[in-house]
Computed example of a mutant assay.
Amino acid sequence: MIAKVRGNSKIEGEITVSGAKNSALPILASLVLTSEEVLINRVPEISDVNEILSMIRVAGIQVTFSDNEIMVKSSSNLKGELGNFDSNIRASILLLGPLAARTGHAELPYPGGCAIGERPIDIHIEGLNKLGFLISEKGDRIEATLGKIPKEVKIKLRFPSVGATEHLMMTAAIMNGTHTELSNCAKEPEIVDLQNFLVSMGAKIKGAGIDKIEIEGVKSFHGTTHTIIGDRIEAGTYIIAALASKGLLKVNGASSETFNFIHELKKIGAQIITNEDHVLVKPSTLKPFKISTGPYPEFPTDLQPQLTFLACYTNGTSEVTEKVFENRFWHVDELRKMGASIEKIGDRTLRI
């Protein structure tokens, strides 16, 4: 695909964000936890969603996807062996624990790689081991077998991994009779959304959004209806584009409570008015800044390339430090081709 962009234009007007991809993927993976009907609204129509849906269909889930709405019909023929499925997305690992918990054994393709740095799944595996699962890797496949189910489990994550937090929370929720305490958890709003979805199906979970999550495993889940939260990264991209072009923009459909990055933008002069269901961005004169990314509630790494772009339109010298991924500067060479003055300081910092 070739896109032609006409420059020297303002990003202005009004736009509504999609449902959050990082919320949709774990919620869709958790559909294997119930045999009853589920309706999910505001699902983004993207390739990762289509791939995770293909995987749960292979597992025996009857699902339709149309007009950003997913309908799951009742199903009782669940299977855990998906080893022959060719998956290229990292979210596929989220199916391992839930499928093994429900069927006794799960086999999946090893999760796809990542172009922005290493994302090892060892934290997932360590947690599943403590929950009583035996994990083995065979070439390009990974298997989990349910062993002796413990009554009490305490798991402290070595790093507040979003994927591991979601994976272990989903798995522990269906382990009847097991009390699980997860600590040093990721705190992202998407994890809160996953908890809300699971609780609406009968899960007993509390604590998402803070450091410690407690789960009382239940025997089964019932059906539910759920609407996915707005995508804060998509919203942040529009906000930054409006600031760079000095446009007047209204961004609808995402709760400003999840916009942990707005206070950082306000510090550098951004005029942003937040409301319950929308954000208004006004033309602003920005001052140079030093901002680092980090796990929530720090500045999101997924907005680091956009922040680098914004620095190019801010008078003075700014610095952006990437503390999450070691290889998330691919955009720099492309910006330099267009005249950006960007210097790399060490392995993690850009001076713009």
Rank of each mutant, 00 (worst) to 15 (best):
F197K: 04
P189T: 05
L95S: 04
S161E: 07
N196L: 13
M175L: 15
K154Q: 13
H167R: 10
I191E: 02
F159Q: 11
S92D: 02
K138M: 10
P189Q: 00
Y110I: 07
I123E: 11
N184R: 00
S136W: 06
K130M: 14
N196F: 02
L94P: 03
P189E: 03
N176I: 11
T165F: 01
G127T: 09
T178S: 10
I135G: 07
G104P: 02
T171L: 12
I155H: 11
R141W: 01
K148G: 09
K148Q: 13
E166C: 08
K154P: 00
S136P: 09
L182K: 06
F197L: 06
C185W: 00
L157Q: 08
N176A: 14
R90L: 11
I123W: 07
P109F: 07
A173T: 06
A164G: 10
A106K: 01
L94N: 04
N184F: 03
S161Q: 04
I135Q: 09
P109V: 02
G112P: 00
A100I: 06
I125G: 01
A186W: 04
E118V: 11
R102S: 02
I142P: 03
G104D: 07
P160G: 02
E107T: 15
N196A: 13
K156A: 12
C185H: 03
R90P: 00
L146S: 05
Q195K: 04
N176D: 15
I149Y: 00
L194S: 01
S92N: 08
I116T: 09
K156W: 10
M169A: 08
K187G: 02
I121K: 05
C185M: 09
H179D: 14
H179W: 07
A100W: 00
T145Q: 12
T171R: 10
G177W: 08
I149F: 00
E190P: 06
M175C: 11
I123S: 05
K130V: 13
G147N: 12
E137Y: 00
A172P: 00
R119H: 08
P120S: 06
I116F: 07
A144T: 06
E181Q: 12
E118G: 10
P150K: 15
I191T: 05
A91K: 04
M170D: 05
G97T: 07
T145L: 11
E137V: 15
G113Q: 09
G132M: 12
E143Q: 13
K148S: 12
I135P: 05
G104M: 07
E166A: 12
N176S: 15
N184C: 06
